[in-house]
Design a protein around this nucleic acid. Sequence first.
DNA 1: TATGAATGAGTGTTCATTCAT
DNA 2: GATGAATGAACACTCATTCAT
Lengths: 212, 212, 212, 212
Amino acid sequence: MTEGIGSVREGDSVRGTGQGAGQGAGQTRAKRADARRNEKALLDAAAAVFVASGVEAPVREIAARAGVGTGTIYRHFPTRADLIIAVFRHQVDACAEAGPRLLATGESPYVALTKWIDLFVDFVVTKHGLAAVLRSDSAGMDTLGAYFLDRLLPVCTDLLDAAVTSGEIRDGVEAYELMRGVGNLCIGADNDPRYDARRLVGLLVAGLRQPR
Amino acid sequence: MTEGIGSVREGDSVRGTGQGAGQGAGQTRAKRADARRNEKALLDAAAAVFVASGVEAPVREIAARAGVGTGTIYRHFPTRADLIIAVFRHQVDACAEAGPRLLATGESPYVALTKWIDLFVDFVVTKHGLAAVLRSDSAGMDTLGAYFLDRLLPVCTDLLDAAVTSGEIRDGVEAYELMRGVGNLCIGADNDPRYDARRLVGLLVAGLRQPR
Amino acid sequence: MTEGIGSVREGDSVRGTGQGAGQGAGQTRAKRADARRNEKALLDAAAAVFVASGVEAPVREIAARAGVGTGTIYRHFPTRADLIIAVFRHQVDACAEAGPRLLATGESPYVALTKWIDLFVDFVVTKHGLAAVLRSDSAGMDTLGAYFLDRLLPVCTDLLDAAVTSGEIRDGVEAYELMRGVGNLCIGADNDPRYDARRLVGLLVAGLRQPR
Amino acid sequence: MTEGIGSVREGDSVRGTGQGAGQGAGQTRAKRADARRNEKALLDAAAAVFVASGVEAPVREIAARAGVGTGTIYRHFPTRADLIIAVFRHQVDACAEAGPRLLATGESPYVALTKWIDLFVDFVVTKHGLAAVLRSDSAGMDTLGAYFLDRLLPVCTDLLDAAVTSGEIRDGVEAYELMRGVGNLCIGADNDPRYDARRLVGLLVAGLRQPR
DNA sequence: TATGAATGAGTGTTCATTCAT
DNA sequence: GATGAATGAACACTCATTCAT
């Protein structure tokens, strides 16, 4: 990511309570502050635990780290996928938004594609086990993959199309497949000093240039 | 694999009990035969279950399928990795042996490398969940990766070196990294019709050709 | 019940806050009105939920339906039994009052008894799970049974005594036992098309007629 | 019950392993003895706990009482209904078998019916909470009711038919309804000194005699 | 040696109840 | 007073692993 987001910002609930302005003394605000503080703690804790023990870490572990009861987690994030999504929401969003920006730079579409994918790899690689869980077929985890895909696929498609149009890369590779492939290459990239996901992704993208 | 290995041959224990000849009628001999038969059944059952439910299938399921008790499995294969290794031993061996053969064909080293990797991909992709478990950091599963690597890395290195020497591919990519990458690309390739691991691996290998 | 009581009237708190008149504009008065309105909503919601999910429905469900917080429920009705009693108070009262009325009709006491019990059965059978909870020995639920009994037992006793006196039924059956029995026969009467509580209760009451 | 069955006999598994004769030294026998001993302990413990805490008592409580792990319970009785059925199997069987016997006595069918129902009441009343759970609509508990019904309904039907044929009782009451009713009357009969289920059931059956 | 019964830690999930706001 | 967020005990259920027979 362009901006190094280490911790999670407040208000990152899955349910985007997009009530932008106005911080009047509305009576409902009171609890909201409390809850929001808690949700923040939860997301931070989850992020930390995800790094330490992977995104499939026991609910209890996350709760303990956040200093809350397990019920609190279920209140805020009914599903594990909800929690994961909330934790990574900003990064995914940032990544999605970076696509058009890169395309508008004036650089060649292929270069934009390359840089965008680097961004994606940076994001995924640093999240222990995220890449793996994106592939997990555990029930409910599909929601997670769906979210990522929904958000990023259109962006990737645009980049890909542009690069095809500019004649820089071959035709015939779907964004879905590419992103899955890149995601897969990121698995296990942390804690393995002999494995550099970025380099391999570089090869993969380089492979796109090959003429038929 | 060149040869379609459907079932597992006898005597495929991890601990190569290489006591080939001699089948006297001593009672110990008899037991030996019994045990070997059992191990055979076990490996066949495990192979079948691995295909059906993945390599992380419950021990009981395998035991049931083999018609033995769970204890028997633990006796023969103390660790799950041991079992997996035993099940796939032949394929890994066949794959390892195919490397030099391909190199000796007279084809260009790059073509040989390509074909060899195709072989590997064919093997891995058809084993439900194998690719994933090769990356799993569950305790003990590292043994599994180690085995695969021990066996295949030298072969891959030779192919890679030859292709570098022949000037067909760029330098600087380790066999370890390449194999891990290819393995990763195979994850989730079954049961996802929109994802073709072979094509992506093709791109990856094509990427190697790029000049620096 | 004779009168179809669908909703609950205001002021039906367990603790009969019998402060009838006077609605000065003092702030405490205002609150009172507020609270009463709230209690009313609560009782209606509870009645609805009891029908839909039984009298053991989660507190949250009732609170949600009433549009109040769970805490509010606990404030008004410290115990679940209190809530149930409040919800059914009117019906129980109506039933209690119907006894003397029936007895005064001029019909034979036995007929009056029969009709009264029919009334009771109608009431209980239509309250999903009420009969069952009347028998539940969950802590605190005894209060509930006690309330029903306190209210209805004297009435039943009178009817019974009259019928004994008139020589229509045998002696020796207590009102307590009879009411418990009738209540029991009502359990599970809804959602079981093959089970008609009224018919069985009819048999039971008919049995009373038998000479010793 | 005729025979006062206090504890549970061995081999009362749900899955009637009806391999009657032959207690040779078959190799499979060995464990069986162990397991059977355990199952016996389990059933006794369950019976005790059912009395103490009802048939919905926590699995752990039963396991603890039996001195086994919870897994053991699940091994023997996958479902709670299985366990309950196993616990009460003998009594249900004995009750079922008593029906024809009573009918063959030479007594009038009505008397036979009365005695049979007394038997049933004796059985149910002494099992704390059994009657209640027979009415529970908790998922899976229907199996339990089904078992009781399957076993006892035919018997009851025969008795009922006979009494109708002999002209002793009125027509038009199904065995299903009658048994449900009797079962219901047994709810809460223990621990309530003022409630005598037998007497009420007597009234119910007496009610059958009434001419239309 | 083989068996498979027993174990029990581990996990997700629900819900009554309390209490800070 | 009202709110509803937080709590955490309670429970069912799974499965890897051990060990008596």
